[in-house]
Each structure stands twice: as C-alpha cells, then as structure tokens.
Design a protein around this nucleic acid. Structure first.
Lengths: 108, 108
DNA sequence: TACAACTAGTTTGCGGTGCAAACCCCAGTG
DNA sequence: CACTGGGGTTTGCACCGCAAACTAGTTGTA
C-alpha cells in the first residue's frame, strides 16, 4: 500500500481551490442557484465568482444559463452530473486520505 | 448560523495547497524527516519540494536543518508546534465544513 | 431631455504561485 | 583530467486568483 501523502499532493486543483470547492459544494446542496444567491452563499466578489464560474463551465462541471426575469438579467447555474460526481468524490477522497494518513506508519 | 460555503472559500491556501498539505500531513505523522524521505513520501520533484519547504519555513510551520552525514549533505525537516497545530486544525475544519455543508438547507 | 444612481454581471491588469528544467557543489571513478 | 551521481537550490515562465474598472440596461429626478 502506497503512502497517502503522494495522493494528497496529486489532488485536482481545479476542484480543490477554495473558491471553487465552495461553489461546487453549494451547488451540490442546491441543485440550481442564481448568480446573486451564490454570491451571498460563498462571500466571493462578483468578478471572482464570475471568473470561477467560467472555469467550471469550461470543465463542464456546471452549466450557466442566462435569461431575463422581468426586465433584469438573471444567471442561473446548475451543477452537471459529472460535476456532482467529482465534488462528491473529492470530499470522500479528502476524508479517506485524512483517515489513511492518521493510520500510516513508516516502513509499513 | 452562517452558511458553511463562505468559510470554505476562505480556507488558507498556504496550507490547503495539495503539495503543502501533503508535506505537513507527512511531517505531522513523522515528527522529523529527511529531504529524500519526504521526496519519496510525497512524490514531488526535488525543485518543487525544495520551494514548498522554503515557503513553509518562512511561515514558521517547519524548521529546516542542514548538516552532513559522513561526506554527504543531509537536510532534516521538523514541523513546529505551530505547524502541527495548524495542519491539525485545517483537517478538522475540512471535516467540519463538509459535515455542515451536508446538513445545510436554504433559508435555514 | 439630461444625467445620476442602481442592477447584474464581465473583462482587464497585475502581482503571486507552482512547476520543470537548468544549475550548483562536492565526491568518487576510469 | 573528464564524467557520473548524490543532494539539493535557483530560474523562467505560464498560469492563476483577485480587485478594480468597465458594460449594458433600468429607474429615479430635475
């Protein structure tokens, strides 16, 4: 059995990055959220949220849909099946790695 | 109670970064390790490991001690009390945030 | 009508970061 | 001497996250 530390170092930074970890985790709890709602939930700045969303969309972890509600634009964000799968997997991996690290012994 | 997502977005990147999370977690299991040992444990490249160690030393999370064993240089790395405290805290926070996120409900 | 202020975002500029490749110093070998 | 290998460090660069500036449409208000 390889040491868990190597696997920690290989964690996917696209998902691991705090801002995106926050966004994906929130979306996985909400299914579908509006830009302004996510803004409040994550505490990110508008510009920041916007650029992280663009990155997540390029990776096909979320889908962004722009529309108008009354006269104002409204951006609705959904997590994709793949996105849901990956964020879930990431959290489980963290849990597992932590667990393995606690039980790890040199020379084992 | 504030939503946990904001706190996820605020995670300290000095520690959260995969390579350093790996190094600190390994050191917290070993107390004290040599450069080459850490190199194997984490799977990082030499240059990479070296620069991350420098950053961790600047933050006073580890102490680096260079010496010679026989005729060869040997770099021994120890985690500081503060370092141990912070990595422990980080893992616990991740666990807690994950827990809170799973139980979070809109409008609660 | 002119214009300030607001909503809902996007784009830009830039300092900071992580990575691999190149480099350094010393010891041993042919 | 030239060359190889051990043990790291430094450099170069592409990428990244952030805040500030900007866009586009809307609502006062004078």
């Amino acid at each position: 059995m390889p040491a868990p530390f190597e696997r920690i170092a290989e964690l996917d930074r696209l998902i691991h990055e705090p801002a995106r970890l926050s966004i994906l985790t929130a979306l996985s709890a909400c299914r579908n959220a509006e830009f302004l709602f996510l803004l409040r939930l994550t505490g990110l700045s508008k510009g920041n949220l916007s650029s992280h969303l663009t990155k997540l969309e390029e990776a096909e972890l979320i889908v962004i849909e722009k529309s108008f509600v009354g006269k104002f634009p409204s951006t609705s964000i959904k997590i994709t099946r793949e996105g849901r799968h990956q964020i879930e997997r990431h959290w489980k991996m963290l849990e597992e790695l932590r667990h393995d690290a606690l039980r790890w012994q040199p020379e084992s």
